[in-house]
């Protein structure tokens, strides 16, 4: 016991050493902008001015943002659109992962499919947004033409002014753009699993589905945490498609996400940098809380239990020592 501890201490310096490039790059390039953002949330900085002074009521920008109806609405939109795209996305990605990592099913053209699924992520969001806006064009557009000519609707439907339609389309684009990414992440996670586990399961006569749910999924827990957390962060910061699909989060603000809101505060007309910064910090807190919840739900129960046992053992041990002292 004592021996290993000495060893661990002697290697600890490499932990610092190998983190150094990250830390240095972060300090040089990102720390200042981050602090700057954190600070200007408490100031009167707006317009093209470069000088600012701190507000007499330090949290004024924060209370303005929290009481801002459009911001509240954008938060609701963000969650709605995220959930509408994330649930089908993770379901499909897991299904594809199950198919593509199964050793029993040798799917042909795997490589080709993996390339195809990731394609939507390669094209710039601007292009995707334009193509979809054209698809759903009104009164003339491919989707309307099909719906009308097949008699499914009588007159063209205005997808572009309907808040619900716009939300659904944005959620679909997000789903379509990101399921390939999620699938690749999950597949690469499954590839890190020790193959001996699969081999022994196969020898025991497990079916592919059993292998997937009993071995693959549990072994991918850490990567699933990554997927959930990054989707959450990415989803709550969703920006490109909602901004581009219909003019800055239209129609009627139905696709205005929190990030689009922050962007319009900072870059549109009034250049309210201070409020944009305050809104960013509020979003940061919301994301951090949601992430903490995900981490808690996905925590490794074995590990936690182990640690708790260790701690309890220690406590009992020390108590016993105290008792002896008495």
């Amino acid at each position: 016991m004592a021996k290993t501890r000495v060893k661990a201490v002697s290697y600890a310096k490499y932990g610092y050493l190998f983190s150094l490039p990250f830390i240095v790059a972060y300090l040089i390039f990102s720390l200042y902008p981050t602090l700057y953002t954190a600070v200007i949330g408490f100031t009167d900085l707006k317009g093209v001015a470069r000088n600012f002074k701190f507000l007499a009521e330090p949290f004024k920008n924060f209370s303005i943002i929290l009481n801002n109806v459009t911001f509240q609405n954008s938060l609701v939109n963000t969650f709605e659109i995220w959930i509408m795209n994330f649930i089908p996305q993770i379901a499909l990605s897991l299904l594809l992962t199950a198919w593509f990592t199964s050793r029993a099913r040798r799917i042909r053209c795997q490589g080709a499919f993996k390339v195809l699924f990731y394609l939507p992520n390669i094209i710039t969001s601007a292009t995707v947004a334009i193509l979809f806006a054209t698809m759903f064009g009104y009164p003339i557009g491919p989707i309307n033409d099909i719906l009308v000519s097949t008699g499914m609707i009588e007159a063209p439907f205005n997808f572009l002014t309907s808040p619900i339609a716009a939300k659904l389309v944005v959620a679909f684009i997000q789903f379509w753009k990101w399921y390939g990414y999620t699938t690749i992440v999950l597949i690469s996670g499954a590839l890190g699993i020790n193959p001996e586990l699969f081999e022994s399961a196969e020898i025991d006569g497990a079916r592919p589905s059993q292998i997937f749910f009993r071995i693959t999924l549990p072994c991918m827990r850490t990567i699933l945490v990554f997927t959930l957390i990054t989707s959450l962060i990415g989803g709550l910061n969703m920006f490109d498609i909602p901004k581009l699909y219909i003019m800055d989060g239209g129609p009627a603000d139905a696709t205005k996400t929190a990030s689009v809101f922050i962007y319009t505060q900072a870059f549109k007309g009034a250049y309210l940098y201070n409020r944009a910064a305050a809104a960013s910090m509020i979003m940061f807190v919301i994301i951090a809380i949601c992430s903490a919840v995900v981490f808690f739900i996905m925590r490794d129960k074995h590990e936690v239990q182990q640690k708790r046992d260790e701690r309890r053992a220690k406590r009992i041990h020390s108590k016993r020592l105290e008792g002896l002292a008495e």
Partner: peptide
């Protein structure tokens, strides 16, 4: 009932609406 800068708007310039 078109919106400017969309396909339907352009179409109206050559009687395709």
């Amino acid at each position: 009932d078109t919106q400017d800068w969309t396909e339907a708007w352009y179409a109206d310039m050559k009687d395709a609406g």
